[in-house]
Simulated scan of single mutants.
Amino acid sequence: MNCSDRLIGVDEPVAWREALEGVPHSFYATWDCCHAAALNTGWPTQLYVGEREGVRVVCPLSVRQHRGAIDWVTPTGFSGFASNGAWPGFADHWAAFAKGRGVVCSYLAQHPDFGDGALEGAAAGEEALYFLDLRQGLDGVLAQADTTRRKDWQRWQDRGGQFVTDRDTLAAFLLAQYGPFMDRMGAGRAARWRDDALQALLQCPSVGLVGTADAQGQMLAVILYGWTAWGAEGMLQASLPEGRDHTIALMLGGVRDLSARGIPWFNLGGGVRSGDSVAAAKRRWRPREASFRRLKQTYDPVRYAALCAEAGVAADATEGYFPAYYATGSAR
Rank of each mutant, 00 (worst) to 15 (best):
G100A: 07
E120A: 07
V141C: 08
G102W: 14
G140E: 03
L138N: 09
F114V: 10
A109T: 08
A128H: 13
D146A: 13
A145T: 14
G102F: 13
G137P: 03
A122K: 13
G100P: 00
D133K: 01
D116C: 03
D113H: 09
R135Y: 05
P112E: 05
G100E: 06
L138M: 06
S106M: 05
L119H: 02
T147W: 12
G115K: 03
G117Q: 03
F131M: 09
C105E: 04
V104M: 08
D133N: 07
A118N: 02
G140L: 11
Q136N: 15
A109D: 02
F131A: 06
Q110P: 01
D116L: 10
P112G: 12
T148M: 11
F131I: 09
A123L: 07
Q110V: 04
L129I: 10
G115F: 04
E120N: 05
R135M: 08
S106G: 02
G140I: 11
L138Q: 11
E127A: 09
G125D: 01
T148Q: 15
G121H: 08
L108Q: 02
V103M: 05
A118P: 04
G121R: 03
L129S: 13
R135F: 12
G125Y: 01
L129W: 12
V141D: 08
E120S: 09
T147D: 15
Y107W: 07
V103K: 05
H111L: 05
A128P: 05
Y107V: 06
L108F: 14
L129K: 11
Y107M: 08
G102I: 09
L132N: 01
T148I: 15
A145F: 07
A109V: 13
S106N: 04
A145L: 10
E120T: 12
F114T: 10
E127H: 06
G140S: 11
Q110G: 01
D113A: 09
T148K: 14
E127R: 07
R135V: 08
A124T: 07
T147Y: 14
E120K: 07
A145H: 02
E126I: 12
A143G: 11
D146H: 15
D139R: 13
P112T: 03
R135G: 04
F114L: 09
G102M: 10
D139H: 13
G115D: 00
L134G: 00
G117K: 08
F131S: 05
G121K: 07
D116N: 04
Q136E: 13
P112L: 12
L119R: 05
F114A: 11
Y130T: 13
R101I: 12
Q144T: 15
D116W: 12
R101S: 07
V104N: 04
R135T: 09
D146V: 15
Y130N: 11
D133T: 02
A124Q: 14
